[in-house]
Structures are given as C-alpha cells and as structure tokens.
Nucleic acid binder design. Structure first.
Lengths: 185, 185
DNA sequence: TAGTGAAATTATCTTTTGCTAATTTTTGTC
DNA sequence: GACAAAAATTAGCAAAAGATAATTTCACTA
C-alpha cells in the first residue's frame, strides 16, 4: 500500500530529480547532528529514528516503512541539525529528493505546496495519535494497540525497539508480553 | 507574544471575516462529537482540550492560550467529528474564522497556503517534542521541563489538568511535587 | 466573612516499572 | 552445523505509580 505516493500525479518534476539510494540492514542512514535537507521515499524496507541518551541507550521515536515519504521536521522546517539518528532496520531502497529543489518548485506550483501541506497534516495526525496514547493508555494497552494496528510492522522489528517506542524498557515489555500471554489462556 | 499572528501580513482577507466570541471561565466551547469547521485566534485566555474516558475521567491533551491560532486537526484536515471537548479555563476572547472561507481563499492564494503549511509544521514540531518527552523522560522530568519552559501557563492551570497532560494521576503529581520540594532544600 | 464544593495533599495498599545481573533463546556468520 | 554475539526472558529488589479514601487547603459566592 502506497501511503504518500509521489508517483501518481502532478509532481513528476520531483521524481525527475530523485536519486536512488540502497542501504543494507543496520546501516546508519543519517547521523545525529546532520542538517539533512532531503526528503526520501521508501520503496522497500524499514527505518527507525532514535535518540541516544546520556547513558548511551537508544530510544526509538518512529518507524518508517515502504510506501512512506519522510522528511526530517527539524531539518526541513527549521534548518536545524537533527538530534536523532536514522538507521535502516532491513535492506532498504530509497528515492532521495533534494529539498531545495522542492522549495524552488513550490514557489509557483500551488499544487505542490498543497501536497506538502497534506503531508505535514498527515504527520501531525500521526504524532497526535501517539500523544493521545501516552496520555490515555497504559504501556500494556499501547502495546496491544500496536499489535492490532500495525501487526506486520511489529513482526519485522526487534522488541527492544518496540519497547522504547511505547515508552518502557525491554525488560518491562517482556513482562507485559508474558502477562498478556497468560491472560489469553 | 503573538505566536501565530494573523494581524501582520497579507492575510487581511481572513480578518475581514473573523467574528468575535467571548466565553466565561469553565464554559464548554466545543463539545465532543462536533465537526468544528472553524479556526480561531485566541486574543485572551486559556483553553484546554480533553478526552473523557469510559470511567468518566478527563484527560487533558493540550493547552492553548493567547496569541495562538488553533485548528482542530481531525475536523479541519479530515472532516471528522472530534472525540475531544474544548473548554475555556479562563474568561476568553476569541476570533473565529470559518474554515470553508479559508479553503476558498486558499485556492488561488499561494501565500495563504504557505501560512497554513507553516502552521501545520509548527503544530507538528510541538507534537513531536511531546512524543519525545514521553519516550525519553520520566513523569518527574516532564513536569520539571514544563515548569521551566512554560512557567506562566502552569501557574494559570489547575494541577489536575497538568497531571494528565504529563501522563500521570493527580495523586501521583502531588507526590512528584513533594519529592521535588524536599530535594531542593 | 462564613459556608460550601472543588482541588490538593496525605495515607495505605497493590500493581507496575526500573535497575541489575544471570540465564536462555535467537540470529547470523563462517 | 557450530560458534559467537545479540536479543529476549527471568529473577530479585527498590522505586514509582495506580486506586481508593480520608483529610486539609483553597476558591468562590451568597
């Protein structure tokens, strides 16, 4: 399923300038501190972005997978270096597009700006849903929702990454899994 | 400080159609279930939006205050009824703008769409920062950050609303406050 | 200013999580 | 298929949070 297609409409000019990028699983795509002024489309694979805490732990904030268009908000919106690291979790195939190009093309292309607005809105709804879940749900419920709503993604990602995604330690997630398994019987 | 001014630039057409709305403290502004197709500018006062859980508890998701432009994402982006309630926490003065009007004006006004894009991006950065804090910080740290970064807002809002905002119960927030107070000495 | 209701704090008890370390299981590679 | 490294689980203990209820403090209004 294509989540944010760039292959279906009036934005062919973008694709013209897209360049392919291939990465192996576990490879670092974007290191912390970089001002990454590209957007990219994921043709294949999963990536995650994470913070490294003072004590060296990696805290995963989001997963991104095939069909999605990704922009790093702080870089693209604010021209700031990202404090996070982006890593391929599987062998990935991306299509990169220079963002300065997008900006230039946007100047007099109202349809392209509308596309950008749509993408920002989509990302916002996703982030808000996440906030909701942190406010309303216990970790156990967040985990259950995740299995229910994104089962195929969960299977492809290590539990330790899921753990920080829902805001708990890997040990705690393991206990949650155990509790849920015993309740089912 | 004006956070998202609509009074300073090329968007006077919007202001033309804005209508004032005054509310008393504790009044419900937007009830759950409504498709609220307006955006509003807060001239004065604070509002909150909250979910009501099955057990009847109110869980506050955001606060909005003077200087901000507010759009209810699910209503404006997706034409969906909101599952949240909006309530004035102080006497408020708002300026309401019909969103259909904004859409119509946007069609051939690239600058207005850019403004909308900017607003969506701003909201996204805010929501992402919130997600970060849930993943990286303990409730105690979230509370400390809040006091540090929004001291004037915190003072104007009841603790029980702060509590759900940072994802804990009012009782737990009270204990956090006690712990912090004892550490200071 | 006295009285009422809501908010905040405190107390008690239970559940969950974090931390650390040990153990088991899984994964990937040679 | 054997080995090494990483991931996941388990265990034990301390800290924090949830639930409930009682008590104190605060805020509003009559």
């Amino acid at each position: 399923m294509i989540e944010n297609s760039i292959e279906n409409n009036t934005h062919l000019p973008l694709l013209q300038f897209a360049t392919p990028k291939v990465m192996a699983a576990s490879e670092i795509y974007i290191p912390e501190g970089k001002i990454f002024k590209k957007i990219f489309y994921i043709k294949k694979g999963i990536l995650r972005n994470f913070f490294v805490t003072k004590s060296g732990e990696e805290k995963t904030i989001f997963f991104r997978w095939e069909g999605q268009i990704v922009a790093i908000p702080e870089c693209i919106f604010d021209n700031q270096p990202t404090r996070q690291t982006w890593q391929a979790l599987e062998d990935c195939e991306l299509m990169e597009i220079d963002f300065d190009m997008v900006e230039k093309l946007s100047e007099n292309n109202i349809s392209l700006i509308k596309t950008r607005l749509g993408l920002a809105q989509k990302m916002l709804l996703e982030a808000l849903k996440r906030v909701e879940s942190f406010v309303l749900d216990k970790p156990e419920e967040r985990y259950q929702k995740l299995i229910r709503e994104k089962p195929e993604i969960i299977k492809r990602v290590a539990d330790k990454h899921i753990a920080s995604f829902i805001g708990v330690t890997p040990v705690s997630l393991s206990r949650i899994r155990k509790r849920l398994a015993s309740q089912k019987k």
